[in-house]
Each structure stands twice: as C-alpha cells, then as structure tokens.
C-alpha cells in the first residue's frame, strides 16, 4: 500500500462504499468507475449494509510480512446482504465459535503500520454481531 492508493480507497475500505450502475443497477464492490456491462461511467456511490454471513474461513498461521505482527488470525469469505461476496479478516471470534453460515458485521480495524514512524493503515474486517 502507498499513502496515495490508501487515500484513494478510504471510502470503500472504511465504510464499504460501493458503486452502482445507473443503467443496469448492478452493484460493484470493490467499486468500479465504469460498468463493463453497460460501458456506463455514471455510477453512483452507496454504502453497503455491512451485514452478512460467513461462507468459508481458515486460520492464517504464516502471515505475509505486513501482518506478521498479529498472526495467527482468521480470514474468510463473507456474503453481504446485498449478495456481494468479499474476502476479509474475521476478528473477535473464538476457535469454537467460528463456523460457516454464522452472521457477521462490519468492524473497523487496523490493517498494519509501516514501522514505528510510518503510516498506519485501517479498514474493514468482520466480527460476530455485537
């Protein structure tokens, strides 16, 4: 990540801002600038609900260098209410609690920091509903 691309993606990363084609109504997350079905560039912004369910998951035991500081951790595929499937970390869940089909909701968490003096990156993760 660089600060420029982090900045560019803050809306989708912070609050699941998707784009929706004004022609075919298809919702894109990650957001697209152009609907490739309609070739339409007039897409509107909309925040997704942040509610969904867990499709599948695993535990990352050997994270890449950026996420080494917090391993091991769970990741999974989440199907949102809008029917969109996204990958995410699953947090605040115990080994005996995590299971396919469980409801999840949007959480705001830290991804990782660049050293002691660099930027800290934040964005969505998912957790069992409060």
């Amino acid at each position: 990540m660089s600060i420029a691309d982090y900045w560019r993606l803050e809306a989708p990363r912070f609050r699941l801002e998707a784009t929706k084609c004004t022609n075919c109504d298809k919702i894109y997350f990650p957001p697209k600038r152009v609907c490739p079905i309609c070739n339409n560039d007039e897409l509107i912004h909309m925040d997704l609900s942040g509610r969904g369910r867990l499709i599948t998951f695993t535990k990352v035991e050997k994270p890449a260098v950026e996420f080494e500081y917090m391993g091991p951790y769970y990741v999974g595929i989440v199907e949102l209410e809008e029917g969109i499937r996204i990958s995410a970390s699953i947090v605040d869940v115990a080994e005996e609690q995590i299971k396919e089909g469980m409801p999840l909701e949007l959480a705001f968490r830290k991804y990782y920091a660049i050293g002691d003096e660099g930027i800290v990156y934040y964005g969505y993760k998912f957790r069992p509903p409060l």
Binding site: V91, D92, F108, R109, K125
Partner: peptide, 16 residues
C-alpha cells in the same frame, strides 16, 4: 485492545 485496535478504531466503532 487487540493488536489491531487503537484509539482510532474504538472511536469509529463508538461513533457509528
């Protein structure tokens, strides 16, 4: 706080 929680993440959650 967990390793991925800090004053910013807590503030966002409470604000929401």
């Amino acid at each position: 706080p967990s390793l991925d929680e800090d004053t910013i993440t807590i503030s966002v959650e409470a604000a929401r």
